[in-house]
Amino acid sequence: AAWNLRPADLDRLGLRASVEDLATMLCSQLGIPCEMDLDALSNPLPAETALTLYRVAQEALTNIGKHAQPSRVSVTAHIQDDRMRLTIEDDGRGFDGRADPGPGHLGLAGMRERLALVGGELTVESATMKGTTVYADVPLAH
């Protein structure tokens, strides 16, 4: 149910600062460097799309904190062909992207479903010991 609550930070700070805060918090907890390039998130997005990107970032960063044991994390956003792409990457343990991740990874299915509701899509690339990259693509507002 918390999934559906709108974070106060998102309304107060906007998407870019909110995602920066999530990443900064995780990286300081893990004591690792965090590369960020989130200028593109300053572009206006429909409220539901912004919330979805925020939740995807939150879920991906939570997964990194729980499972990845990375030495660095990168969170970037850029615009291409009227689409916004949020990329969250770590160099941690990764997982076999071909295997069924099992019940512990319901987060990926949830992210995929949420993105589909706003016309977006989720791509996850991971390999054991090679880290994980999560791409969330959404259409820009017109």
Rank of each mutant, 00 (worst) to 15 (best):
S74Q: 12
A47W: 00
D37W: 07
S71L: 03
E48H: 13
V73M: 03
F95M: 01
L140C: 04
A2L: 15
S28V: 05
T128H: 06
T87N: 10
A116Q: 15
G31V: 10
A136T: 08
A17Y: 04
T132F: 00
S42T: 12
A40P: 11
A60C: 13
A141T: 06
I32L: 08
Q80G: 10
M129N: 14
D9Q: 14
P70V: 00
I88V: 14
V124K: 02
L26Q: 07
Y54R: 06
T49I: 02
D37K: 13
W3D: 14
A141L: 12
G104Y: 03
S71Q: 12
L13C: 08
Y135A: 07
H142Y: 04
V138F: 02
G120D: 06
R6T: 15
H105E: 12
H105N: 06
A1T: 14
V56C: 10
M36W: 03
M129Q: 12
A8R: 14
D37C: 02
A47Q: 13
T52G: 01
E113T: 12
L13V: 10
E20M: 13
L115A: 05
P46S: 12
A50E: 05
L140F: 06
A141Y: 03
A109Q: 12
A141V: 07
P33E: 11
R112Q: 10
P70T: 02
D82T: 06
G119A: 11
G131C: 00
V56L: 11
A68E: 14
P44D: 13
S18C: 07
R114H: 13
A8F: 09
S126K: 00
A68N: 01
Y135E: 11
A2P: 07
E121M: 11
D82C: 07
P33N: 13
V124T: 11
G119H: 08
P101N: 03
R114W: 12
T24Q: 12
I32Y: 04
I88H: 03
E121S: 15
M129A: 14
G97P: 01
L115N: 10
D137R: 13
P33W: 09
F95C: 02
P7A: 09
G119P: 07
R12Y: 07
L106H: 05
Q69V: 03
D9F: 05
H142D: 14
S126T: 09
E113W: 05
G110E: 08
G110P: 02
D100C: 04
D91V: 00
L22P: 04
Q69P: 01
D81Q: 12
T123C: 07
I32D: 00
I32F: 03
A57L: 12
V75R: 02
L86S: 04
L117K: 14
P44Y: 05
Q69I: 05
G131L: 00
A8C: 01
R112I: 01
L86Q: 05
E125K: 10
N63I: 01
L140W: 04
I88G: 01
S74L: 08
D9K: 09
C27E: 05
D11Y: 06
D81F: 01
L38E: 06
V138A: 08
R55K: 15
A57H: 08
L53T: 07
A17S: 11
L13N: 14
P139S: 05
R16G: 09
